[in-house]
């Protein structure tokens, strides 16, 4: 899928640029995009190290498993592939909680930790499992109680009611999350995606 999207973006860009006369801009844009990517990645090192360190303590102290057990009733339905008190569950909950509070600096490292835990249960090295797709979809739709960035922009623009969009954002992101869960679940059943599922026998996963 990403092969088509990626190639599509580049090909459309090139063809359009031929007509709009923006061919010279394409090269500059590609290079600056690559630079941005590296800056973002390198910028993650410190915060990643910090949260992975804290998460390791939480893991050794048994806190992650405790969290996982608390949300078992919900997660065993959403993530049937994952053993209910697996650390992946605790890490996912922390990631979602950080998103809810608008703590994006903490949310990413916690989310990546959760991905790593999910990957430890994935039989394939390069193919996403159903759980990983669902977790990712939930993250792209992420529910936020405090959209701090946009509130800041509104305040700066002299808004009389900068917080008026909290309720509407919450509604929209909740709808997006529900749709994300349903879509990820339903699409996973389509033959074309089922065929590529790296973990067809979920029962065996639990024994690992």
């Amino acid at each position: 899928m990403l092969n088509y999207v990626w190639f599509g973006l580049i090909a459309i860009a090139f063809v359009t640029a031929m007509f709009t006369g923006k061919i010279p801009d394409l090269g500059t844009a590609a290079v600056s995009g690559a630079e941005t990517a590296v800056n973002i990645s390198l910028g993650l090192i410190g915060i990643m190290a910090l949260w992975l360190g804290i998460m390791k303590i939480a893991e050794e102290a048994g806190l992650i498993r405790l969290l996982a057990r608390l949300i078992k009733p919900v997660t065993k339905r959403l993530f049937p592939e994952i053993p209910p008190d697996h650390p992946a569950m605790g890490a996912m909950l922390l990631n979602l909680a950080a998103n809810w509070l608008g703590l994006s600096n903490a949310a990413t490292p916690l989310g990546l930790k959760a991905m790593e835990e999910l990957q430890s249960l994935n039989k394939s090295e390069d193919t996403a499992s159903n759980s990983q797709v669902l977790f990712l979809a939930m993250n792209t739709a992420s529910i936020t109680f405090i959209p701090a960035t946009i509130i800041g922009v509104r305040v700066a623009a002299g808004s009389q009611e900068p917080f008026s969009i909290i309720a509407t954002s919450l509604f929209a992101s909740t709808c997006a999350t529900i749709v994300a869960i349903i879509t990820a679940k339903l699409l996973g059943r389509l033959p074309v995606f089922k065929k590529t599922n790296p973990n067809i026998t979920p029962a065996k996963e639990a024994e690992k």
Binding site: D126, V133, A141
Partner: peptide, 9 residues
């Protein structure tokens, strides 16, 4: 291989 992640997102 992202499977149905792109359409779902």
């Amino acid at each position: 291989k992202t499977r149905h992640a792109v359409p779902a997102g």
